[in-house]
Amino acid sequence: MPFSAAELLSIARNYWRPDRDFDFRPENSPEAERFLELWEKELAKMDQWRAFLRELGGALPAFTIGNATATCDACFRCSVYPATENKPQQRRWVVVGCVSILAPVYTVYGVQYEYTGTERTRDKVFLEPLPPEMQAPADIIARSIEATFGVEKLSRELSEMPVPLIVEPHEPPNTTLFHALFISRPERVP
């Protein structure tokens, strides 16, 4: 059964603050402590995550699969790049799969990069719908995540819902449920 917006917001409030009361204090906020404790528990699942990445590689042999998980974010994250021929390209793209550690939900999104020479000059994040070239790998990632982890896809409507929380660098009214449950800077993919 899908989670309601109120239930997801309630979960997110356990890990993110609505204020900056703990900025510049030597101790962490209770929310930050809960977040760190949760990651300590979730790190025990890294072997399962790595096995998932290997299986995903088998399902997407024409792609490069990477682990983009960072414990400052609220999710396990994989990156799926089309194989390139080692020659510079002006445009590149990646499809990213995220499994939240806060709630049993996931998302898949895309990022398109533009380069001038070797310097990234622009990026664009795509939620649903993804551009046509990203759709097939996104579908495989989504099915694989659901089958492996038994989590539900977070709808775009809920992903874009503003939340009254601070998830650096976002502050209300610009913070969304996507930022709180997954990642605040989705364009940052290695």
Rank of each mutant, 00 (worst) to 15 (best):
D73A: 13
V95Q: 00
I101W: 08
R50P: 11
F35A: 01
C98F: 06
Q90E: 14
R91C: 04
T64M: 05
L43D: 11
E33L: 14
Q48T: 10
R25L: 10
T84L: 14
E27P: 05
A51L: 07
R91H: 14
A83Q: 14
A68R: 04
K87E: 12
P82K: 00
A103L: 03
E27V: 09
R50Q: 09
A70L: 11
T69R: 01
P88L: 09
R25Q: 15
R54H: 12
A44H: 12
G66P: 01
R50F: 07
L43Q: 15
E85S: 10
P61R: 03
E42C: 12
C78D: 00
E40I: 06
G57H: 04
I65F: 02
N28L: 08
A74Q: 01
E33T: 09
C98V: 13
M46I: 14
C75Q: 01
S29P: 05
L43G: 12
N28G: 07
R34P: 00
E55M: 10
R77F: 07
W39G: 01
F63V: 11
C78Y: 01
E31A: 10
E31W: 00
E85G: 12
A44V: 09
P26C: 08
V96L: 04
Q90D: 14
A68H: 05
Q89Y: 06
E40A: 10
Y81S: 11
P30Q: 04
A83L: 07
F35W: 03
L60R: 00
R34T: 04
P61V: 14
L43P: 05
P30V: 12
A51F: 05
F24T: 11
E55T: 13
F76K: 03
V99Q: 02
A32R: 14
F63I: 06
L60K: 01
S29C: 10
G58Q: 08
K87C: 11
A103Y: 00
G66R: 06
Q48D: 08
